[in-house]
Design a protein around this nucleic acid. Sequence first.
DNA 1: TCGCTAGTGTGAACACTGTTCTCGTCGATG
DNA 2: CATCGACGAGAACAGTGTTCACACTAGCGA
Lengths: 295, 295
Amino acid sequence: MAGGVAAGAGAASCEAGRVTDADAPADVPAVAPARAGAGAPPGRTGATGVAEGVRARARRELVGRIADAARDQLAEVGAAGLSVRAVTRSLGMAPSAVYRYFPNRDALLTALITDAYVGLADAAEAAERAVPRADLLGRWLAVHRAVRAWALAHPHEYALIYGSPVPGYRAPEDTTVPAARVALLLAGVAVDAWAADGGAAVPDGPGAPVPAALLADARTVLGLALSSRPADTRPPAEAVDLRVPLAVVDAWTELFGCVSFELFGHYRGVLAERAAHLDDVATRTAAAAGVRARG
Amino acid sequence: MAGGVAAGAGAASCEAGRVTDADAPADVPAVAPARAGAGAPPGRTGATGVAEGVRARARRELVGRIADAARDQLAEVGAAGLSVRAVTRSLGMAPSAVYRYFPNRDALLTALITDAYVGLADAAEAAERAVPRADLLGRWLAVHRAVRAWALAHPHEYALIYGSPVPGYRAPEDTTVPAARVALLLAGVAVDAWAADGGAAVPDGPGAPVPAALLADARTVLGLALSSRPADTRPPAEAVDLRVPLAVVDAWTELFGCVSFELFGHYRGVLAERAAHLDDVATRTAAAAGVRARG
DNA sequence: TCGCTAGTGTGAACACTGTTCTCGTCGATG
DNA sequence: CATCGACGAGAACAGTGTTCACACTAGCGA
């Protein structure tokens, strides 16, 4: 590598500093279509026409091709080495052309972030869906294994979303929804287990019930988990043991803690059997969330 | 931010891809002193003289000043925005001068990585040392709180060591030793607790004892933990319940999983009471490792 | 059907980056 | 005292993100 290579956003900053996060409203506007431009041409059938217009269609396709090329390059050189010029080169277009579609490099990275969240969540949901609904522990394990497998298969994309946040001060709204899907998957299994047990509490938490300081957070998480379920399978929030949502948060944290530690090299020389270890962890967190083998 | 900003290492890659890690021997040579040059001048008192030589001393000081300036800049703009030229500018020297001391930008970053590990471990050890030895749960909690506090106070340095690995293919040996100190601190408390209990096993693990696949890893971790203790406080390895080292690994993982999730924004909108949550997690992982309140 | 306009692509340019190289200078060492 | 190696400066190179003025052309309203 002879010449220099350019570095990311001038002032890349991560969350902390101010602990309570009342932050600015996202420097980078949205994800893909930069200028609103050809969103929905007024012609054709009226207001928001059914046909989307030739130009808008071409635009959307090119946005996709740029993102695909960028993802290819990301897989090779990582986020820090992702070069706008290299992407345009691989597409045979001028470097400046990409700025018709993404306002800057960070926006391109943000699009990849969104895609990565979606890809990971799709993989996890597909794996979970393939397990019989009654096999609660199997579904729980399937989510864990799918996340790890996806991370190993897409290490740079994983690092992009679960490593240090590189682009902007906060992720735009688009990413928070797909980012939550894996956690909601775990929460769904836990609530199913709770319902299958006929409302039995989690078994034998060694610690006290729920610290008073965490009651509000537990209710928040439970609300998020329940609101993502169809209404007919939604138990009343007051009935659910508040240890369940907290256990889900901890399981979610530990899942990504394990995968990140493995991928980022912190287990080197410490743990060799990473798959077996994650299974072990998942079995334990499942028990804490009330998900047992014979569900 | 008008002009472009350069991006990090050409081929920044993280661990995975090959799952079993039999990897190349570190592209970046060592940490601070680039050319062996003025390591220990033959003059003075003979072999490795007591006086280190004026020139070597000046060199060591300048290396330190460069690292300090780089750390200052890191705290402002993050690792991706760290610019060698900006560092030299803040020191009033030519951009090329820094290459007398660091072979490239990655080596400078590696030095900051080592420093960050050391700073974090120092903070954790100091906090743990301030707690009475008999208060085992207090020591365990102190380590957790100190890690979180240090991370909140040095977010970019934390991201540098526990976010996506940016510089090279693997961290040089220098970083693995300080990186292990926090984990060894937890292990020390757990072994103390085990000894204080007179060799009682951990209480009520819901899962089976230890999966066969993890026996070897558990023994490895136990060996690392024991070999870091003074010989007179070192119990025989066969006597310790193998669930203890595994519980320590999981506690260590969950600690950094929580802190990373908080710092990297994944708890936004989910958990507000992060300190209370970490205390809760720590109390639970302590119990799993056999560390109880009345030690 | 024809003009106009807005979206598109280009190439040059700017400011910046990491890194290398050459060339004086100067200090410690034989 | 002479010499050699470390040092610092400055120019240079290749590459970067981003902007801008300019052609072009597809698709719209008239």
